[in-house]
Amino acid sequence: MKTNDNVMIHVKNLKKSFGKLEVLKDISVDIKEGEVVVLLGPSGSGKSTFLRCLNQLEVATDGLIVVDGQEITDKHTDINKARENIGMVFQHFNLFNHKTVLQNIMLAPVELKLMTKDKAKEKGMQLLERVGMVDKADAYPVQLSGGQKQRVAIARALAMEPDVMLFDEPTSALDPEMVGEVLAVMKELAKGGMTMVVVTHEIGFAREVADRIIFMDGGYIVEQGTPDEVINNPKEPRTIDFLNKVL
């Protein structure tokens, strides 16, 4: 794939505790521009927390995170500005229920004065075209299926023209027949060269789309490598154990 050597996300000795519970113990990883990284691991392994640290929805307890040259763990960094560049897609979609599909997409670019209303609308329609949701532009989130909601959520994140996209179990809340349509959008995005970090249980997607798989357990990175290395030939007993359970 179009991976080059520019480091997009640099994480060094990241630690995160909730009270006395230490969820991330010592994470160091570099993710390159255009790379698609899938985080695998049993629940409670810290993969979602790690993802949420990358845009500081969870404030790191210790360590360094640099995204696209911005040190987001630095208290002096304008975190709102940094987040404009980091899109996030949630397990439960989190569409703004009081706004239409198009308004959901336009809200942030217009409010942050990155685009005029007209420009944002145009951009919004383009994105809806891309995720196959043009005919629902004026619908409200309650009228959409889960798969449709998630595709809109992806479009909403893309409207900010981010350089990085984070996906936090984007298909876990979906009915099985809707998983495919969301994964298709994500695949297309990966092909377009987007830097993506994805927490998922979809091993098939990981195998097909990921450049690298990171297997986490107990707050540590246990094993990482290409899908072939990690899924087909895992070395660590914990990885083998996990894959035996899910495959």
Binding site: E84, F90, N97, L107, A108, A157
Partner: peptide
């Protein structure tokens, strides 16, 4: 209001006060 609403709004780069005014309060008022 579901706390995911605030998270989604913040993740787009909107400040706390903008998120409150544009996303949370309009839904809370109902």
């Amino acid at each position: 209001v579901d706390k995911g609403q605030m998270e989604a709004s913040r993740s787009l780069g909107l400040s706390y006060s903008k998120s409150m005014r544009l996303v949370l309060l309009p839904q809370a008022i109902r």
